[in-house]
Design a protein around this nucleic acid. Structure first.
Lengths: 409, 409
DNA sequence: GGGGAATCCCC
DNA sequence: GGGGATTCCCC
């Protein structure tokens, strides 16, 4: 009966858990006091600037040189903004706002301390935790500039989680047996405790998504009575930050499209160059918006697994437009869509053309311009970039250009 | 003066090298006797089956499960063949044929023991060296089945080379001071020797190409007099084996082509899906052979760096054909070409069409087949595979099919 | 900031 | 046998 958790005190591993703690304590255990000490009409943190949604996590091996910081979600083109929080309903002097990475489960109560770490100014290199002091001068506002997210290698996660859990356990033991020596505290942890920690760490490591984090903010004040920090607000989580360098969470993007118009009857083969997609986790969505930007029609490009070349190109056929007896062309949109997270790429313009079968005969003579691209019956493929592609689709309804096709007699 | 190489005996690190040894000894040092003991009109090894030119090297971490063996270069579709050598002009009983990986410098005299190892039956797990006994029964022929090439991680190469050099040095010292204890031998190696080894290992590691090896074969016989093996042939190197999983040495391949014909005037945009290429190390070669398979014309597709999408797609424009007043279409070939090693992909058929400007007008009416691909004025893009693509290019000279183009009025 | 090389994992 | 995920490196 060596365990600090045997007898009347509840073991953290028994079902008899301590009061409704929404998340386990971090390794900085002195910070963690029961939340019920917090008045719910008292001070709180609100997030003035959410972090950007996509950001490239960097491995420790990449921490040489500089690679850009986490910015605010709606940072302006020119003037960068950064994640920012404000401590409200508080005027009892300086406070510390602590920022820790947590996992991104939908259910906030399931979130755990993440193995990934924060890097940059105000960040503790040991813990990967960032702290900023706020006071009246700063209007109790903390701007987290210069943040990086350190991607801990998968192979290291288990051991890290295990060590943290061990720390927790020892801290708890120290709290309960304040007069014991470190040696005694260490010895008070039983093999059963260790086994439990091991199993939990294994399970947690396996289920931890290394490509998503949230920023968890909480405010603390130094309390002279207990000679340590105590929380003065509940924790608040930011929106999810996704790892940009990952096919499951990275940015969807159409880099180049072989044609941006095709007959409304569908079935036209089009080639796309795209950024890292996953074969079974990408759709090509055609859709149409009304004047109020409401989606009035959608359909998906058709392709097989084999039409996705590595993670960078897709050869597909256009879907039939909702109407096939067009007399004039119709402008719609195309975008990539990722089923797993419903994320989409920026939408490109696409033009559905009247069915050529219903067009009058035309004269081919003297119509080929020498040196003009000859790839397609449609306007030449364009290189797209953010600033130029939105107006590339060609509307043929007001001129005499006609698409031609392979002639079969 | 502790070094085994001080005084009158030549240090392996002085310029006064021992007799014309074309390559350094391996760690299996007992095997290595001066080659001048070999009669040059005596026994020799010849290679009956060269190894295949491209093979995927596997990391140690991939050594779980099975991943296929190194086969002979011209293994039949159905019946696999394996690298095979024969010991000739020898009839003095069983011999050992040793197979060791060496680097693949053009100049054979610069080749060194490679850090990569061989795996499989008859291979020593410590040394990565493979040995097979041949005798009259086997017609002195060794078939190396079940060979794998283990890709040693770059970060480990320096230390491995260093350890081998140390072994060599110790072995040499033992030979020269046969009555010294191991401890004495070890102490006889000076800091200067060690420094030299370190520098050499560093240099060798840096210059070693981890994506190429040759198989070096040599025959040995057990000699009762010296109680060890002595070589009975000179070593013989196989053709180079390239690592298949590498953009610089891997197989060049056109997986899919958006069109396999275009006007002889050139400038047609065509999209290629390819296997791992390097932006600055790939050309698209069009060429024509005469009846005797002599190349009578060649030209290259035009594209910029930015037209290579990651390592898997290239958007380029066709070169102008050597004649632009064709009255009938001409069949040529296209292939990828890699400047650094002059390697090429399999060549696909491509058809140059008469300049459409010179074609008579045609009638478009009733010529579009519903549901037919509409991507291009050219035949629909085809998925290529080894067995089917060679006949895909369409020759339009003998029928009434006509390519149409974007009409500009 | 970003692409791709090197290494590892798994269908 | 092969594709791609993971980690690392470098322009």
């Amino acid at each position: 009966m060596n365990s600090p958790y045997s007898g009347e005190s509840a073991s953290p591993y028994s079902s008899d858990q301590s009061i409704g703690v929404p998340s386990p304590p971090t390794v900085v255990a002195a910070f963690n006091r029961p939340y019920d000490a917090i008045h719910h009409d008292g001070p709180y943190i609100n997030i003035l600037e959410q972090p950007q949604s996509k950001f490239r996590f960097r491995y420790k091996s990449e921490m040489v040189g500089t690679h850009g910081q986490l910015k605010a979600d709606r940072a302006e083109k020119n003037r960068a903004a950064f994640p920012t929080v404000k401590l409200s309903k508080w005027n009892s002097g300086p406070a510390v706002i602590r920022l820790t990475l947590y996992t991104a489960e939908d259910n906030i109560n399931q979130r755990k301390r993440h193995v990934h770490e924060l890097s940059g100014k105000n960040c503790n290199k040991e813990t990967g935790i960032c702290e900023v002091v706020v006071d009246e001068k700063s209007d109790y506002t903390a701007v987290f500039q210069n943040l990086g997210i350190i991607h801990i290698a998968k192979r290291d996660t288990r051991e890290i989680i295990k060590q943290r859990k061990l720390e927790e356990l020892m801290t708890l033991a120290r709290v309960r047996k304040p007069h014991h020596s470190n040696e005694e505290i260490r010895r008070s942890i039983t093999p059963t405790d260790l086994k439990k920690i091991d199993e939990e760490a294994e399970e947690e490591a396996k289920s931890m998504d290394l490509n998503k984090v949230v920023l968890r903010f909480q405010a603390f004040q130094y309390d002279k009575n207990i000679e340590s920090y105590r929380p003065i607000t509940l924790p608040v989580d930011s929106d999810v930050v996704f790892n940009l360098k990952n096919a499951t969470t990275g940015e969807l993007k159409i880099v180049r499209m072989s044609a941006c118009s095709a007959p409304c009857t569908g079935g036209t083969e089009i080639w796309l160059l795209v950024e890292k997609v996953r074969r079974n986790n990408v759709h090509i969505k055609f859709f149409e918006l009304d004047e109020n930007d409401r989606e009035v029609w959608k359909a998906y490009g058709e392709f097989a697994d084999a039409d996705v070349h590595h993670q960078y190109a897709i050869v597909f056929r256009t879907p039939r437009y909702r109407v096939t007896n067009l007399s004039t062309s119709v402008r719609v949109k195309v975008q990539l869509e990722r089923p797993t997270d419903k994320d989409t790429s920026e939408a490109l313009d696409f033009t559905y053309l009247p069915d050529s079968l219903k067009r009058p005969r035309i004269n081919l003579e003297n119509t080929l311009e020498e040196g003009k691209p000859h790839f397609s019956d449609l306007p030449p493929a364009k290189r797209f970039n953010i600033s130029s592609y939105t107006n590339e689709a060609i509307d043929l309804s007001n001129n005499s250009k006609l698409p031609l096709v392979f002639v079969n007699s």
